[in-house]
């Protein structure tokens, strides 16, 4: 009999850098399955079908694609007293971030999406009084991209001294502990600190209105 050890443990944070995996997640139903449901717990095809309003066959097809991309795993199979055999699936991580480098290297509109998303995020800072002119946008995108990349690298490589005890923690406690340690690791990473200073300096230099938070 297989034991719980045969299922890969759920990570707290996973950076998706594989371009194929990124493309797979660009399908609306698949993104919904992962980000709305399976990061929060395991579900059966039937439950996902009911939740999304899609046919079970369609859901299973999407699950198969997500499994191939390494984003979803089969967690367990249970039999109910009535004879139904339910197979539960869950995401491989509680939180995902799309690796910005992977997106920039992808084709099929993904790279353009990533650029547009960064650009619109930076432009939206104007609501906080930070006006970045068009001529400075490329530089802003570049600094922010490097900062995000560094944060992803540091946050996704937290050393865990006791993996078994870590996996045995209640999910909420594990998530909180993970967030504390992520923050500490970022504070200790000199490269991240340098990039953050550069980014904050850039933002300060473009602050137009008299907002003085620091």
């Amino acid at each position: 009999m297989e034991t719980i050890d045969s299922v890969p443990p759920m990570k707290d944070l996973e950076i998706i850098s594989d371009t194929n995996a990124i493309k797979i997640l660009f399908e609306e139903t698949r993104a919904k399955i992962v980000f709305n449901y399976l990061v929060n717990g395991s579900m059966t095809v039937k439950q996902l079908s009911d939740a999304t309003g899609k046919n079970p066959g369609t859901i299973l097809h999407h699950i198969q694609k997500l499994q191939e991309a390494g984003l979803v795993v089969q967690e367990r199979t249970e039999q109910t007293p009535t004879g139904i055999v339910q197979r539960y699936y869950r995401a491989t991580a509680r939180e995902y971030r799309l690796g910005i480098s992977g997106m920039m290297e992808a084709n099929g509109g993904v790279a353009q999406f990533a650029r547009d998303r960064l650009t619109s995020t930076i432009s939206s800072l104007s609501v906080y009084g930070i006006e970045i002119p068009e001529s400075q946008m490329k530089k802003a995108v570049d600094i922010l991209r490097r900062l995000i990349e560094r944060e992803n690298v540091v946050s996704s490589n937290l050393p865990i001294s006791n993996e078994r005890a870590y996996q045995a923690l209640p999910p909420a406690v594990r998530g909180d502990a993970s967030r504390i340690m992520r923050r500490l690791s970022l504070e200790e990473d000199s490269e991240y600190q340098r990039l953050r200073e550069e980014w904050h300096g850039f933002l300060r230099s473009h602050r137009k209105v008299g907002i003085e938070n620091e």
Partner: peptide
């Protein structure tokens, strides 16, 4: 049914724990 039973992963269902509430933000 046989396929799902044989190819499935059997695990002991864990007792439900505390509610999944987070206290920690960006500390």
């Amino acid at each position: 049914r046989l396929y799902l039973i044989f190819s499935g992963i059997e695990v002991t269902v864990q007792e439900p724990g505390d509610p999944d509430l987070s206290f920690i933000g960006g500390v």
